[in-house]
Amino acid sequence: SEEELEEFAKEVLRRGITIIVNGIRITEVEIFVKVLREILEKR
């Protein structure tokens, strides 16, 4: 749901943790923004 997305976004921003994806360091915020864009483009 959109509320869950908002909560996830807030949690990500609070933690600001960097994770490893395919050997490249990407912040969770960047991943969230990318996923959010993909979701919005599909609408």
Rank of each mutant, 00 (worst) to 15 (best):
S1F: 14
S1R: 09
S1P: 06
S1G: 08
E2A: 14
E2I: 15
E2S: 11
E3M: 11
E3F: 14
E4Y: 13
E4K: 12
L5S: 01
L5E: 02
L5Q: 03
L5N: 01
E6R: 15
E6A: 12
E7A: 14
E7W: 13
E7P: 01
F8I: 04
F8Q: 01
F8C: 13
A9D: 01
K10N: 04
E11W: 14
E11K: 13
E11G: 08
V12A: 07
V12T: 06
L13D: 00
L13C: 01
L13K: 00
L13S: 01
R14W: 13
R14E: 04
R14L: 06
R14D: 03
R15L: 10
R15V: 03
R15W: 12
R15S: 07
G16C: 15
G16D: 03
I17R: 07
I17S: 05
I17N: 05
T18I: 15
T18D: 06
I19Y: 03
I19W: 05
I19H: 00
I19E: 00
I19Q: 00
I19M: 03
I20N: 02
I20D: 02
I20T: 08
V21H: 08
V21G: 02
V21Y: 15
N22W: 14
N22F: 10
G23C: 14
G23P: 03
R25K: 09
R25D: 06
I26M: 05
I26A: 02
I26G: 02
I26L: 06
I26R: 03
T27A: 05
T27W: 11
T27L: 09
T27Y: 14
E28P: 03
E28M: 07
V29M: 05
V29R: 02
V29T: 03
V29H: 04
E30F: 13
E30H: 13
E30W: 15
E30L: 12
E30S: 13
I31M: 11
I31H: 11
F32T: 01
F32I: 06
F32V: 04
K34S: 07
K34Y: 06
V35D: 00
V35S: 02
V35Y: 14
L36G: 00
L36R: 02
L36W: 07
L36Y: 03
L36A: 00
R37L: 13
R37G: 01
R37M: 09
R37T: 05
E38R: 10
E38A: 12
I39C: 13
L40R: 04
L40M: 08
E41W: 11
E41M: 13
E41A: 14
K42Y: 09
K42D: 07
R43C: 15
